[in-house]
Design a protein around this nucleic acid. Sequence first.
RNA 1: GCCCCUGUGGCGGAAUUGGUAGACGCGCUCGACUCAAAAUCGAGUGUUGAAAGACGUGUCGGUUCGAGUCCGACCGGGGGCACCA
Length: 831
Amino acid sequence: MNRFNPAVSDGRWQRIWDERAAFRADSTSNKPKTYVLEMFPYPSGRIHMGHVRNYTMGDVIARFRRARGFEVLHPMGWDAFGMPAENAAFERKTHPEGWTRQNIAAMRAQLKTLGFAFDWSRELATCDPDYYGHEQALFLKMLEAGLVYRKESFVNWDPVDMTVLANEQVIDGKGWRSGAPVERRKLSQWFLKITDFAEDLLDGLGDLAEWPDKVRLMQENWIGKSKGLQFRFAINGSSDTLEVYTTRPDTLFGASFAAIAADHPLASKLAHDNPGLAAFIEDCRKSGTSAAEIETAEKKGYDTGLSVIHPLDPTRQLPIFVANFVLMEYGTGAVFGCPAHDQRDLDFARKYQLPVIRVVGDADEPVYNEAFVGTGKLVNSQFLDGMEVEEAIAAVIARAEADGWGTGTTQYRLRDWGVSRQRYWGTPIPIVHCGDCGVVPVPLDQLPVKLPADVSFDKPGNPLDHHPTWKHVDCPKCGKPARRETDTLDTFADSSWYFIRFASQPEDKPFDRAEAESWMPVDQYIGGVEHAILHLLYARFWTRALKACGMIDVEEPFKQLFTQGMVTHETYKAMDGRWLEPTEVIAKDGALFEIASGAPVTAGRIEKMSKSKKNTVDPTPIIEQYGADAVRWFVLSDSPAERDLQWTEAGIDGAWRFVQRVWRLVDGCEDADGEDADLTRAVHRAIQGITDDIEALRFNKAVAKSYELAGAIEKAKPSKDRVKAIHTLIQLVSPAMPHLAEEAWSALGEDGLVIDVPWPVADPAMLHDDTVTLAIQINGKLRDQLDAAKGAPRADVEALVLARDKVVAALDGGHPKKIIVVPDRLVNIVI
RNA sequence: GCCCCUGUGGCGGAAUUGGUAGACGCGCUCGACUCAAAAUCGAGUGUUGAAAGACGUGUCGGUUCGAGUCCGACCGGGGGCACCA
């Protein structure tokens, strides 16, 4: 008996697909087109199991749709710019480009061993000047359309290394290398006007029926549309006013203070002759820029001594505080505090001994340490008393508009997209700053603005800025000496249009409109759920921006989205706190030890595989041992695709066994006459089930049904139908196990490749059974079962059930109160 | 802190709209084949109980003839939070 030998077969079939250019996507094809895309990888070094899972899912869909008669575009490329390359350059004295290119070569070779049906002729890397040059053109197009502007905003500043830090590089408020407390510092930066599209991006979610609900919900909350009241407080003893925004104008009578952001112009103004306040503002800036850091920081305030006049009750004055929890980026950078109905305001009020005035709900029940955030009727609120919250909101807005101190407005939480990065390894922003002409775009015929190769990473900071000559250029407009922009674009820009470049890649422009439109939108997009907000929102925005620029008539880039779960693994830590790789750890007598030293190891949490935690697993040795198909089969089989998959070494064996089990069926396939109606019914059920499951990306269920079909074939006696069933089984598993399928197809004596055989279709007449097993319940508890004809009339079923021994015994001569019959499922006797 | 998701045997999970909980796989146990092992094949496998049965889907409560599924509160785990990709 032969065994299937992937060491020989995998390479053979990969070569044959390659020679025939089997997966080349033809833009001029007459077949219906479909575009299957997985999020392209960052070339971090080696592929990991998350990649294998992601690309296997996409590959199954791509091969399945190909078999269903589609012209399939299924490309692969590299999200090649980013910080890790610069970190490697800094640490190992290598050049980011060399490091990146090496990683791409290694990962491409690894992906090829998995036999993915990619159109490699369209491969691209975002660090190719060919790619980022076109991106620069798109940036300038957006600049021209008024979608790009400059403004000051905060960055994390490491005062020792004198460099900007990413949020990831701020650990417990300190710079990751210097260990110095991080500060916020203002820098002039480039922004894209994503907020111009806030309403449109929100509306568009409604049409994305084939996106997961949770992703649409997260994006909706991220955009954060709210309706409220924007109004002016008169500042006591001054002609100035303080503009605030609130979503709860109904609680205005419960206001007991006003608070402004540390970066609010009023705060800066007051700080001039108030050293205490200046110190407080300084203190507020001693933290990073991330929301998680700011919002979990201790709530602190500084009483400015000023107060505002309550707009609905001029006899009341509210103190103005500068507070570290008010964000300048949201609303107007100023709020009023209503402690009784907002937990944060309540904590603040208790800390600074401010009044707590209940204005919603039961007036007799005072608010102590828990704010009342529910709804109810207004109290202690003059003309609002007795109104419901919604009514009161409308009433206050109406009053404000009538009296002229405020207006009802719509706000979005969404902020414009800051794209400036003070780093080398990214797309240079194609701008020249000229003393006379100001901001001057680099002319299109001078693109790409290429990164200089000769840079040094000896000192922290942006090598482009340190470069002796690169930034010194003549102004393209007036010819006088000028300065090149040294910031590069956020790498999210690179991944915001690569899917269009995949569809069409002319040399002289970013894409050919007609060709791109013939493939777009991506029909099936697959990637990690961790991208649910940022990447997907930026890509949706960028596509809309291109449409607004008149470059493409596509609004939503991804028609159907699937967010796969992550591949996780236990983490391991040595006694001295070092993270250890799974291969460095051994389990003995229920405890863990470091192999090298024998020292005990603590098992940490199960987390997303990441380089920093070292809990990654390299797929290559496993592919070498078991072959591509077993690995592909395993990553599909164990967990639902949208859920996290915990990688364990056990389990791959089961997939390997199935590969051989299918091979044995093929190898032992005997020609014979005669029919086998039961087996044929099982085959058609499997065709229907597996087809539906693949379409819905329920791969784990398709796998289970494949096992069932294999089992049915094993049990069947030789017959003509059994030979057919084996052929069908091979077709059904071919998207997931393509190498085995080709080998089997050829071994069965078929000419041609299984990839060219149309997908089987189930005969609806073969999908039904004549009898069903009914459950018999007494008071909702299962007591008996009964085989009955499918679709039997209710009266017949009832009679049959009432005659059962167990039912007779339970009734004990009495009558049932009620009989519930669920056709073809169950009968429940209520006694 | 805020937003989103998730919790079912020893393990991964299945259960289409509320209708027989545990499909399928892993692991384990026993048996067959073998000098032996591997591979393979067969039987069994939620807990408890001799059996009938009882119990059982993170916890507590509710709706219902019937709840893993719906509602409320709570607990645990994960993802995102705008400069990680």
